[in-house]
Amino acid sequence: MFISPMLLETAAAPFSDSRYIYEPKIDGHRLIYSQESANVKLYTRHNNECTRQYPEIANAAFTQDIVLDGEIACVDPLTGVIEFESVMSRFQARRADKVRQLTQTLPITYVIFDVLRYKGEDLSNRPLMERKEIMAGLALPNAHFGVIPYVEGAGEALFAQMQARAMEGVVAKRKDSVYEIGRRSAQWQKIINWTYADVYLSGYKKAEFGWLASVPTDSGRMRTAGVIEFGVSPTHKKAFYGVVKPLITGEDRDFVYVEPRIRARVKIRNWTRAGMLRSPVFTEFIV
């Protein structure tokens, strides 16, 4: 059984409130674990089945039928850091031999943060803390399952810990919140631990909006680091396109290229292992 997950709104800043619990935000991908008559199916938040990608949990079963909401995480064995790129390597693997190999080199953990059905009962209309109590009593099938920890009220302190550990951020949830299936709700809010980077704008997309971002290499040359598609207001677009024409150096099917003279600051989730900006969002021009 697939249940469309409850989604989070974005908080402007860390906050502390006794009406909320606060969980570490896991840098993985959302996963619905569904067990009916001992048959386990795994689904992404968009209802794509991914059971075969994660045999560590797909081949395990609880003593009772259950539907869980959580996150797939991969921990780098050398650094102990949760790595999104490793999760994507697992998710994109399809061949059985490749999946078997990755279970050894990139084992996953399913970090559970909610229980939606249990013993045939729909729990979505119960308050969050009741659902948490049921979760705390579950006997987990194997070591690839874990339950997210949380603190009550101390959101700013937890966010400071996430910053110190370079983790993705914090999720704030109202203690009395019901599970709003398939909806984005202010009852659950995410506070992202953004990293900031300064880049040069070296081109723009032809078909739809997007600015090409580049960064200097050690040798002083420029290399492409990603495309900025979010956070740009109409005023910023007007300013950019108003001055960029004399800077054009060439074009191809997808991009118009310009001299990298305009600088911008972006916020990102992190740098990828390949040196690319992950999810860049424009914040301002740098003069």
Results as ranks from 00 to 15, higher is better:
V67W: 01
L68S: 12
D69R: 10
D69I: 07
G70S: 10
G70V: 14
E71Y: 08
E71Q: 10
E71C: 05
E71D: 11
I72Y: 05
I72M: 14
C74S: 08
C74H: 13
C74Y: 13
C74L: 09
D76L: 10
D76R: 08
D76E: 15
P77Y: 06
P77A: 13
P77C: 10
P77H: 07
P77N: 14
L78E: 15
L78C: 12
L78M: 09
T79C: 10
T79V: 12
G80N: 14
G80Y: 15
V81E: 15
I82S: 01
E83L: 11
F84E: 06
F84Y: 07
F84W: 03
F84A: 03
E85K: 04
S86K: 07
S86T: 06
V87C: 14
M88K: 01
M88H: 01
M88Q: 06
S89L: 11
S89V: 07
R90Y: 01
R90M: 02
R90N: 07
R90K: 12
F91R: 01
F91W: 01
F91A: 01
A93W: 00
A93P: 02
A93V: 07
A93R: 03
R94E: 15
R94L: 14
R94P: 03
R95C: 02
R95I: 03
A96Y: 04
A96C: 03
A96Q: 13
D97H: 09
K98T: 09
K98I: 07
V99S: 04
V99R: 05
V99P: 03
R100V: 08
Q101I: 11
L102R: 05
L102S: 05
L102D: 04
L102F: 04
T103M: 04
T103L: 02
Q104W: 00
Q104E: 14
Q104S: 10
Q104L: 09
T105A: 02
T105F: 01
T105Y: 01
T105V: 06
L106A: 05
L106D: 09
I108K: 07
T109G: 02
V111L: 12
V111K: 09
V111F: 11
I112S: 06
